[in-house]
Write a protein that binds this DNA or RNA. Sequence first.
DNA 1: CTATTTTACGAAAACGATATAGTACCAAAA
DNA 2: TTTTGGTACTATATCGTTTTCGTAAAATAG
Lengths: 355, 355
Amino acid sequence: MKVERITMKDVAKALGLSISTVSKALNDSYEISAATKELVINYVKQKNYVPNPIARSLKHGKSKSIGVVLCAVDNAFYSQVINGIESVAHKKGYNIIINQSHESYTRELINVQHLISTSIDGLLIAVSTETKDFNHLIKLQEKGLPLVLFDRLTEEVKTHKIKINNMQSAYEGTLHLIKNGFKKIAHITSSSDISISSERLEGYKKALRENNLVVNDDFIKFCTHGGMLSEEVDVAIAQLLELKELPDAIFTASDRITTQTLIYLTKASKKIPEDIALIGFTNTALAEVLNPSLTSITQPAFEMGQLAATKLIELIESKFPVYDFETLILETELNIRKSTVKKDLNPKEDEETND
Amino acid sequence: MKVERITMKDVAKALGLSISTVSKALNDSYEISAATKELVINYVKQKNYVPNPIARSLKHGKSKSIGVVLCAVDNAFYSQVINGIESVAHKKGYNIIINQSHESYTRELINVQHLISTSIDGLLIAVSTETKDFNHLIKLQEKGLPLVLFDRLTEEVKTHKIKINNMQSAYEGTLHLIKNGFKKIAHITSSSDISISSERLEGYKKALRENNLVVNDDFIKFCTHGGMLSEEVDVAIAQLLELKELPDAIFTASDRITTQTLIYLTKASKKIPEDIALIGFTNTALAEVLNPSLTSITQPAFEMGQLAATKLIELIESKFPVYDFETLILETELNIRKSTVKKDLNPKEDEETND
DNA sequence: CTATTTTACGAAAACGATATAGTACCAAAA
DNA sequence: TTTTGGTACTATATCGTTTTCGTAAAATAG
């Protein structure tokens, strides 16, 4: 089954003109008389001729599409990022081609390979949790493919990057727990290899240290697959709950881990925050109506997508090679809710709805 | 900034061969000697030459990419559908180009227009809530563009379609409420124009009628934007809560409406299910940990995506025009949780965790 | 040792557009 | 009358492939 299209050739033949004339008429060239232009345009409209973008791309060496690689669209944070990307890409006439790595390095490689073999004008990527080797990206860049990293960065690739202030966000989140009386704070994060994890871990440690709390390695759990496998989160929490010295709070470092932790604790009949408090990075719109409402660190996902796309298109459309790269840092928002506030501790602050 | 690629011409020149020979060697043609093939393949590997897919597409008239149009990726159900689509599309070597309509007919038109002007081999679409006129799709199909509708269907377009059993699902959901003692059941749904809404409404009405409950039009609220605007949901609920005769349960017909309803009721300090029960269509993974845990109707989103993509690729790759179209109907799952079960009503059934 | 068939390759025409370089035609200037 | 110049168009090369057709040279047959 194939869709038959009418081409310039057909138009030219039908009107007794040359192909060049038709092309120029459609491109509103000064070389073509008003009469001819009208003739062509009318005919084309009537037959609803659409120029073949592939032929155009071949001629121009541009495909007007940008590739997006991230772990999963099925994730509040990343789907909001996509929204942001789309909002600027479409405005500038670019399509976005989305590929999911599912936090697998192998799939990331395949995706990137496939995307470039598919002729994208540029690539937006948040690497997988498994990615330690960035050669696939470095090579791309050496070839001159415009590239922007977002969320998960690396020093190894020199290009524009967009991130949030991970250290500070994690620091503030942890500090919030400490201020609310929690002293034995566990941290569940993704693979230690990716920037967001290590930076958030740093922030967590910094807050502990500054408050004279020991950093207990038993309290720090890594989920290599970034929570894509709920089991790995379950195992991490199970281990935490088996310690002689139980943590009194958990700070989770990513969307999937946060929600999976809440699900686990609920199933395990843990009272939050009485038995154990929970604060986490998440962009779900449902934080307010979770049980209990969840103290969350929210990222400006839409904005991140917008900036990433803007920067990428800037690179794509730049007439000259760009060597001067920026790393943009966005701020998060700490939304304090019930999962971290013990009722007896803050009696006045807790005059809210629904309990 | 532009990425420089090595072409067959370069390879040919470097090896002292003709372009045709290189092409044939790479395509493993019988016309080329083993020695030459090896020579070419080695060189190409070393220089990592990648064939230009645009030139290929131009030659073959196929772009190996399929367009996807839906209201928003930032939505549990649709993001899972995308996962399903991707899983089969990539296996078959197709890219997916995702466009969001944001429930706007105008944007849907623009998206579809843009996609076909971008040379997709086929289109997967769940129309927007605003879409009443399907001429844009009918025209596409007349041109021979393979098309598969999913989730939101219409009789007007003759092609493969994938849906869930909306009537039955809504019927069972409503029945569940009735069995649990609710008699004044409100229904908040999307625009009455789209299939899922009208079918779900039918199921709701059927359940009421079969149980000798009156269908009260004041209890039925439409959200033209499918909940994309949270205000319209808020207004709908506010109106329900202002009725002299208050509903004792709400049945919501889509993901966004469901979650927004929960948020509203929570803010309004309504006790669920004591003041008002809630059951809704939603695919969020968080239903279990919402406050209260939410009785939900879950759709096989991933499977829907897979089927839609499979059917579309079948059309694309069919050698002959297809006239024999199918409508596949998938079943949903009713997950009974606390938002619809009054404690005093079912004292034995309610021995669960966390309250 | 010529005639025929294979084998292995090259030339060239597509695919559908754009862009450069002509070229008729007619009018105004020299 | 010749020159210049503008207008309005056409021819053609090009983008990077694939594919059809043609043809040398080598292999086989007669």
